[in-house]
């Protein structure tokens, strides 16, 4: 059994001895919420799923960013965070990269959307991006939808259950960045339904039967089947 509790900063989630996750502070024998969110009190562990907050970069995260600036050595990518991501030109052009011979904007221009992985991030340096691997690189088309980064886990669902359901029922390809940027491709009516479904997830992320709500909204029919 898990107890769920709606909390705001300063609220006591539980008293006693527990393991606890982020956005929680221990004060004496009390565990205090640091964010507005849903706290889960399990038999031995405490968890706080925040409903609002910024995206803080983590190594290995998959993000979707926008080229915000180009300098001699790479691309500055807006990843909807307090820090811009940096994609070094040598990661794209290889070791023979030279600012004199390679035109960076021929590869990614200002405003281009890029699917990337955060290769490394330490607190003393801006996050470094990489596009090595399948499916990374420039995003050529699609509808851009932005959601609160804290709601990404709910949009994806347990092992992708939520996002797969939306995708199947709308016939759309949905790509979700951990930073809250979503790109959707598909038939026009599917795009509209997907956008609405994502909006419901965003607005009702705190409700327990979210999956059922989305399923009810999308109906039983599957587009194109």
């Amino acid at each position: 059994m898990i107890q769920r509790k709606q909390v705001i900063p300063g609220d006591v989630i539980a008293k006693g001895t527990y393991r606890y996750g982020s956005n929680i502070e221990k004060r004496g024998d009390e565990y205090i919420a640091l964010r507005v969110g849903l706290a889960e009190v399990g038999t031995d562990g405490l968890k706080l799923n925040p409903l609002t907050g910024p995206y803080l970069p983590r190594a290995e995260d998959e993000v979707i960013g926008k080229v915000a600036d180009i300098n001699g050595f790479g691309w500055v990518v807006d990843i909807n965070s307090c820090f811009d991501g940096f994609l070094p030109a040598s990661f794209v052009f290889g070791r023979e990269f030279s600012p004199a011979t390679h035109d960076l904007s021929s590869k990614f221009a200002l405003g281009d959307m890029i699917g990337a992985r955060i290769e490394s991030y330490e607190r003393s340096r801006d996050p470094q991006l990489s596009i090595r691997g399948h499916g990374y690189g420039k995003i050529e088309s699609g509808e851009i939808i932005k959601i609160s980064p804290t709601k990404v886990p709910r949009l994806i669902g347990r092992r992708g259950a939520m996002i797969n359901m939306i995708s199947e029922k709308t016939g759309c390809d949905i790509r979700v960045g951990q930073n809250g940027v979503v790109v959707v491709n598909g038939p026009p009516e599917g795009l509209v339904k997907t956008a609405k479904a994502i909006k419901i997830v965003e607005e009702e992320a705190h409700s327990a039967d979210l999956m059922a709500k989305i399923e009810a909204y999308l109906g039983g029919t599957e587009v194109g089947k």
Binding site: V67, A68, A109, L110, G111, M113, I139, G142
Partner: peptide, 11 residues
């Protein structure tokens, strides 16, 4: 300060 850049695909 940076300026607002519209995404290429939106533009």
């Amino acid at each position: 300060k940076k300026n607002y850049v519209v995404e290429t695909i939106r533009k």
